[in-house]
Amino acid sequence: MKMRKYIEVAKVNFKAQFAWRADVIFNMIFTVSKILFAYLLWRMVFSGKEVVSGFTFHSMLSYYIVSSFLSQLEMSAGISSEIFQRIRNGTFSKYMIIPVSMEGYFVAMEAGIVLFYLAFDLIAALLWVFIFQIEFAFVTDVFILLSALCLILLGLFFMVQLSYYLGILTLKYQGIDTFLMIKNNLMALITGTIVPLALFPESVVRIMKALPFYYVTYLPSMLLIGRCQEEALAGIVIMVCWCLVLQVVIRLTWAKYSRKYDGVGI
């Protein structure tokens, strides 16, 4: 019964995307800029070298195809902006009065949107593989494939949690828009969507492994192209721990600051 409410929220948000058909198409087309960047940059690099940090030219491009697909799916940044805007203009009450958990609502909303974009992003990825004539490297081991899928779901869930958490921080800090923009810039680097984290020095990678962002895009992408397979299980465990920790932090933050909301805007 409880689940049905969230499924309805996901369905509504899935259907709502049909209203923005042009956006979907253009978002799909503009994913090419990431692939084009990778193609042109690494074409130059690989013109004088066969292997860079364990990547061949085609495995590098395969990595970018997968990581670009995953980063396109991750659209939770809108959650923090939505919460921030609504708290600022006093309309956040909309979410407080609905008979579902607020965080659950945003998770269901994200699920509906991700499901809608899934097919389009997959088509875009296949299109770029075909256009750039990439010898696509893909994992064949079913266990690793399932582990990667598990990590992708955990990563998406963690990012929703993070966006929700940053959104509710508006209750304390009032203006978080600058911080959100800086976060978006940094996120592209630390999730490995601009360059694979394997290119960074070993000490930096070790630090990254302790943080959740390593497991959001980078590790699933590496697993899907058939690398870092020994890290799959540890990755899942670490990610589950991070999700639990963040859930506790969210609860505590909400309990502390929710009473600051007065519904009249800032």
Partner: peptide, 26 residues
């Protein structure tokens, strides 16, 4: 300043990582 500064610092870090693995790009 903070938003665009972070953007270009990220670019610097990216190319630092690339050049740690290769001598020249083009």
């Amino acid at each position: 300043f903070f938003v665009d500064g972070s953007l270009f610092l990220v670019q610097l870090l990216v190319f630092r990582a690339v050049y740690a693995n290769v001598d020249t790009v083009g």
